[in-house]
Design a protein around this nucleic acid. Structure first.
Length: 430
RNA sequence: GGAGAGGUGGCAGAGUGGUUGAAUGUACCUGACUCGAAAUCAGGCGUAGGCGAAUAACCUACCGAGGGUUCGAAUCCCUCCCUCUCCGCCA
């Protein structure tokens, strides 16, 4: 959520920044809401003050045993108008909140201008592309003989699910363990285990709601006479982990908070029909190791760079070639001010594919969540939130299957994973 | 699932429907005393919003959440949420 104060004072500037990412800010609507809010709120508070004063007088008069009918008569008519105004004010504030809730974050000044993925800017390429003296197969073909089974997954659940058996299932587990160990032992993150179902308030906090409900899986929960409240399956650990600090004031000396979590992620993938239907690139359920930092505003861009480095380290240790791109204004997510994607090389597709997305949200999420810290003056101030995948486990497995495939159909296990796999060097068919 | 007890400021903990945004203690900040510290004494110390140049004054809201009664609610009524204790069930 953007700062209301900033919107009031610099609306044209904000509108210009939002226009960079193709969002048209409805200035007229904003000013209409603001104008009405101002008059209704002022009038409401006037009446409230009047009522409060009179009520105090009644109390005092009664204590002295004086007659109060005169004062009572004075306030008698206040009730109706006040009630109406309070209701109206509530409505206006709800409308303002709804208006603000669907405005995306303003992009950082250094974010390249662009409309789509095609306009993203490559920052660096790391690693050397593998050379094959045989016909390269994609991960589906490589994996099917060794336990990658989409048919059974489809029977059990449907499309966009996958099932792993034997050494592939173990490598999948090994990857998550390896990533967690690297981030906790070497990068200073605190491991967390978090709920996979969260309430609507948490989804609001990180920006998934109210605008992207159709991307989420919703689980109804019956609350007796109070109706139905929904749980949502998390689309990323970013949601529960970041919301750890919702409505809290963190002491300055505890910043930065650095958390890592390994969780399943659930995405409805509504609107992506026909995209990446083959293989385990785009799934309703996948695993991800997520890095989250809650930082001092002055540190957030440095934190983003370091977090990006932590994610890159994983690919380097796995000897997977990748590149880092800076997303353009048109490709960035709703809540982000600046995003780097890490894209891993997939030889069968002859291209780089996203395996991590690292963003600085500045105060956008923190404002929604009221995630604050106590600054040097002792006053509460909004923190900045930074997060990124470190990495998406399923896609990492895909990358290993494709990059490490051998002429004989086997797959070489990256050295760093072998300790997690009983020393296994090759996964073979059968 | 059954029975009971609770949710009040950073923490602890009062609060007969009326000068209660809230006693008191503690923590913290400032000052006095002291060579310095401790102890003691005095003062200060919540958040959000409005108005505004203002981190000033003033006004409004906030005692788990949401409704209701009332001129007036932390206090009374209703619904829900959460926490704790005991019993039952359970990985």
């Amino acid at each position: 959520m953007l700062d209301l104060q900033t919107l009031r004072n610099e609306i044209n500037d904000v509108a210009a920044q939002l226009a960079r990412r193709g969002y048209v800010l409805d200035i007229a609507r904003f000013e209409q809401l603001e104008g009405e809010r101002k008059s209704v709120q002022t009038r409401t508070q006037e009446l409230q003050a009047k009522r409060n004063t009179a009520s105090k007088q009644i109390g005092q008069a009664k204590a002295k045993g004086e007659d109060v009918t005169f004062i009572m008569a004075e306030v008698a008519n206040l009730g109706d108008e006040l009630k109406q105004l309070e209701t109206r004010l509530e409505v206006i504030q709800q409308e303002m909140l709804a208006f603000l809730s669907v405005i995306p974050n303003t992009p950082h000044a250094t974010v390249p201008q662009g409309k789509s993925e095609a306009d993203n800017v490559e920052v660096r390429k790391v690693g050397t592309l593998p050379k094959f003296d045989f016909e390269v197969k994609d991960h589906v073909s490589v994996g099917e003989a060794m336990g990658l089974d989409f048919e059974t997954a489809t029977k059990i659940s449907g499309s966009r699910f996958s099932l792993l058996k034997g050494p592939l299932a173990r490598m999948h587990r090994a990857l998550a363990q390896f990533m967690l160990d690297a981030h906790t032992d070497q990068h200073g993150y605190t491991e967390t285990y978090v709920p996979y179902m969260v309430n609507a308030e948490s989804m609001r906090g990180t920006g998934q709601l109210p605008k992207f409900e159709e991307d989420l899986f919703k689980v109804p929960r019956h609350m007796g006479d109070a109706g139905v409240e929904n749980f949502y399956l998390i689309p990323t650990a970013e949601v529960p982990v970041t919301n750890m600090v919702r409505d809290t004031i963190t002491p300055l000396e505890q910043l930065p908070l650095k958390y890592v979590a390994h969780t399943p992620c659930f995405r409805s993938e509504a609107g992506s029909y026909g995209r990446d239907t083959r293989g385990m690139i785009r799934q309703h359920q996948f695993e991800k190791v997520e890095l989250v930092q809650i930082v001092h505003p002055e540190q957030s861009y440095a934190a983003l760079e370091s977090l990006l480095g932590h994610a890159e380290t994983i690919l380097q240790k796995l000897c997977l070639p990748y590149r880092v791109v800076k997303l353009c204004t048109g490709d960035m997510g709703f809540s982000a001010a600046l995003t780097y994607d890490i894209e891993v090389w997939l030889p069968a597709q002859n291209t780089y594919r996203e395996i991590s997305s690292c963003s600085n949200f500045e105060a956008f999420q923190a404002r929604r969540m009221q995630a604050r810290f106590r600054n040097a003056l002792g006053k509460p101030e909004l923190a900045h939130t930074v997060n990124g995948s470190g990495l998406a486990v399923g896609r990492t497995l895909v990358a290993i299957l494709e990059n490490n495939q051998q002429k004989d159909g086997s797959v070489k296990v990256p050295e760093v994973l072998r300790p997690y796999m009983g020393g296994l060097e090759f996964i073979r068919a059968g």
